[in-house]
Design a protein around this nucleic acid. Structure first.
Lengths: 221, 221
DNA sequence: CATTTTTATTTGGTATACCAAATTTTTTAT
DNA sequence: ATAAAAAATTTGGTATACCAAATAAAAATG
């Protein structure tokens, strides 16, 4: 029977990739351990293995950096994760905020071919249900041209692309407002009085704070 | 991150179930080790763990027997495996003899709910692509009423249900004859001369040995 | 029934992937 | 510059799941 070869490797690489791209700060052992919810000793040990495997580099200042090889593997894992998320939402009728754990399991299925077939089966979706772009089979990812709603111009129409805060609480709140990735919305006005936002969603007008607006990424239509 | 708790347990239980149902002989450590392609020491160790978990019983004569709990878990694993096989063939356009390894991975995804949804999505198929029956969500399996073609009556029509030998070689051979699970065939005659079989498949007449006929399970139409 | 042969079991290892606690090194702040 | 805080590292463990080789027990066979 096949072994679960380097099953956790994908989690490390994926998390490293996210940390590297989300912040401009360098990633250190502590940060990675925190992100993975693991003991620093464990992470250090694993980073050394990943260094041997040429997946990461340990810089002289002790920051951890993905190599090209590591970055590609991370992106392919992200591809798997996001495609399975689309599958779960589109075909298995899960809600977009219910699929993370399952996709976390499915992303470790080893078969590039299956993932490519899944991609085709789903109609080569460019985004996952959270609005995150899906890397192609070579690990190339389209730069996301979306901007926070808080930076947008009143009177214009936008498509919701992605959410920065993906906490359950926030997603529930947006759910009530009927806002989700893919939804067309119109920014009505930014109220000077309290910096709140007025937005048209499916023929209804809703209000929310600037904090919320900062967490909604949109693309102009 | 979630652990791969008892990931191999499912393989042991599944294999045990198959050994128990395929032969009337009792299953001993050696047989199980051979079936799993593992060292007997490893298997013995694991069987003790499974005994602690009330999945199997070690009989005084040292034969290994699944408990009800173990049998149910085995059947639910088989359910997962077979449903994923249907998915791979029906939706991912794999050929029926290409899906085993992948299903072997997918069957370990932990979510009874996902499997039930998958079942619905696939239209509650009663059989997998090899013709094996798919247990329901409670682990109940319909008794297979099929018989080997070698025991059938010339002149009657049958549906191919299942194959006993699932080696690539055999499947390739049957592929050339256009015989696969689900196919309607007519047994023309059993030739006394060399015990060979003459069968009508899709308006064509094909011949094969008794050995082949013994490995094709059919149901009368 | 004694001897092979087979099966079961024990023993001492391995690899992966974790952890807690102690220690060392580095950074930060006074 | 030095004390305190933070980060990195080492050390000694754990659990799962494997193996090879030695030994013991059971079964088969002459």
């Amino acid at each position: 029977m096949a072994h679960f070869t380097h099953h956790s490797e994908e989690n490390y690489l994926k998390t490293l990739f996210k940390l590297e791209s989300r912040q401009d700060k360098k990633v250190n052992n502590t940060a990675l351990a925190k992100a993975l919810n693991l003991n620093p000793a464990t992470v250090l040990e694993m980073i050394r293995k990943l260094t041997d495997r040429k997946m990461v580099q340990l810089k002289p200042d002790k920051s951890i950096q993905l190599t090209e090889k590591g970055k590609k593997k991370a992106l392919l894992t992200i591809r798997k994760h996001r495609l399975w998320e689309v599958f779960l939402v589109e075909k298995m009728n899960y809600k977009w905020n219910e699929v993370h754990e399952l996709a976390e399991q499915l992303e470790h299925i080893e078969s590039a071919d299956l993932v490519d077939r899944l991609d085709g089966f789903l109609g080569n979706p460019p985004f996952d249900p959270h609005g995150d772009p899906i890397p192609d089979k070579n690990g190339k990812i389209k730069p996301n041209l979306s901007v926070p709603l808080s930076d947008c111009i009143p009177g214009k129409n936008y498509t919701v692309i992605n959410l920065i805060d993906t906490s359950d609480e926030f997603l529930q709140f947006l759910g009530k407002l009927n806002i989700l990735p893919g939804r067309r919305i119109k920014l009505l006005e930014k109220l000077k009085y309290d910096n709140s936002f007025s937005v048209e969603v499916q023929e209804k007008t809703v209000q929310f704070s600037e904090k919320v607006a900062k967490n909604i990424l949109v693309q102009s239509v």
